[in-house]
Design a protein around this nucleic acid. Structure first.
Lengths: 190, 190, 190, 190
DNA sequence: CATGAATGAGTGTTCATTCAT
DNA sequence: AATGAATGAACACTCATTCAT
């Protein structure tokens, strides 16, 4: 039921997954407790359903990442990916947070998260190798750091904890990542 | 009481602040509920006490950050700071997570976190300016991204979610940050 | 929910408001803790709800008090009022005790009690003035003493602490009050 | 230990017997929990010890009640007794309340209260019979009502719930009782 | 005699989940 | 399909009482 999906997303975003009460979700969806349990086995089951959607979004995002060279085109491609990630985070933030912060014990939710992040990580790693940078002995370390930075910055942006203009933040991030991970030379961004 | 501090840290780290039960902490400290409430007003009060210690540690860490130039010395200084941060995170991870993830409503805990992170952020920002890099229109954005990456990578390391050797991770992080934030040229690390 | 009202009244009467456990009430009502908190915010909230009902009863009782002269008709009217008070006390004793003994901090409960007792006190004071007795410099003192005696005697009757036949007690009270407060001449009651 | 007696009395008076915490008493007496349990088996035991003192006071008071005729001398004697009761209530209010309100299960405390009130009741009853009044079929009913009024008025005075000058209250009470219980004729008090 | 840190049984309250309608 | 009243296990917190020093 769409109403419950949306309400769940909203309440999870506002209160956080653990603090979110089924009652809040049900009221936000203008429906009843009975209906909730008609569609979902429990609160975690709703998160799981949302995780499926989110994982699909992120996988599509990963597939769309083009070559990222050290030049201006690479910068633009990177900027595009970051922008896409922000969009997805805005919608599925609580799910992504649950993955990153290990908030749920559920194996299936975990699996979906690992799969989605692996897809993005693998693509970014591939793009790094194409760019010829020998950034890390262990590529996983680099990709992990990159994803970590992305998630946290997005959380800070979404939760209004970081009072920075979104465009400025994206430019800054893109430049840092372009240089730090893709070996672009120092100097002003395009 | 040291026993409760340590037990609190341990349980918060294992279960997370919100999921942590006073009962878990009390059992981990091999003491009683009564004793817990003899020393702390409630669970949040314990977190607050831990936050005070953590903030002191981080402030000291910030004060110790020397100049970070684009050369090998700068790399080493950066590596040293990262190593210090890992040590503090290993001990006070739950407190730092509570700060970053906005888990508590308490004003005082928040204030301590903002103060500590501002101290580090200000010092790093200063070092970036000294390094002559014009990394970002908005320095706060850069520093925010840097701190975000640090926290998340450390969480991943501490919670064993990232199966990467710690030294490799630190080298990778140092290189990325050295290039991305301090304008060091691409190339192998020293 | 009627079940909880009645059970609350019963348990408050048996154990006293403070000693009464929510668990006792819930068990007496043959329902669950959850249900209790579905209808009342807490134990005090139940007392508040009961106080509303009691205050209504007492206000009606006050409105019904007719003229009380020094003659036999006055005696009968007084007897009627006392009988009505006994009935209300039998039902709402714990609420009235809470008012008299200042057992709760809640402003609203207090207000209800003051209002109800003021209604009765004002009416009785009026009847005393009509009876032409100049009983006290300060009418409030007389009315206060009267209400105090009433409440305490009723408590003693209701709690079985006073092993006296109710009719005898009411006759005695009526005679005492008729003489002491309404200036009826000494002599046997009608 | 005198300190604990006084502190107990004070705290019982302020918070009420049930709400009074051993911790409050101990702090008021500027001593320790250990010391408290050195002298008293528990909180109730302290009340019991205070009850012994109070019962002695009341018995003495009862013994001192002289003849109460319908004349001015009777009024003065009654006034003297009431004044004495106020003094005792001021000191031992919590004990007397505990008796009247049946706050404790302890048999011994109960027994002391019954004994003390019986002593006063018996004496007053005797004085009523001497005064030739045939107030009640059941003298116990009359005495009960009298004692009830006394206790409640004193509580109201002591707890500042009744904002009436003490002397005015005593005059009013004396007049009411003189007329209502001892058959004095209506008219202004001496 | 005196202390006060430690205890743990007991209490109020919350909230995910069920099920009769 | 939809409802929402009812449930009870689980949790935070209190405070009378003990006992090693």
């Amino acid at each position: 039921m769409r109403k419950l999906f949306d309400a769940g997303m909203r309440v999870f975003a506002e209160r956080g997954y653990h603090a979110a009460r089924v009652d809040d979700i049900v009221r936000a969806a203008r429906t009843s407790h009975g209906t909730f349990y008609l569609y979902f086995a429990n609160k975690e089951d709703l998160l799981r359903a949302l995780a499926v959607e989110c994982a699909e979004d992120l996988t599509k995002l990963a597939d769309g990442i083009g070559p990222i060279g050290p030049d201006d085109d690479g910068y633009e491609e990177l900027r595009r990916f970051l922008s896409g990630f922000v969009t997805t985070y805005r919608r599925y933030g609580p799910v992504i947070r649950a993955w990153m912060e290990d908030q749920v014990a559920d194996r299936e939710i975990d699996r979906l998260g690992v799969k989605a992040f692996t897809a993005i990580g693998a693509r970014l790693g591939e793009r790094m190798r194409e760019a010829g940078v020998d950034i890390a002995e262990d590529e996983r370390a680099a990709v992990g750091a990159l994803m970590a930075m992305l998630e946290r910055v997005n959380y800070a942006l979404a939760s209004k904890r970081m009072v920075v203009d979104e465009d400025v933040m994206l430019d800054t991030l893109a430049r840092i990542i372009h240089r730090g991970f893709f070996g672009a030379p120092a100097g002003p961004a395009p």
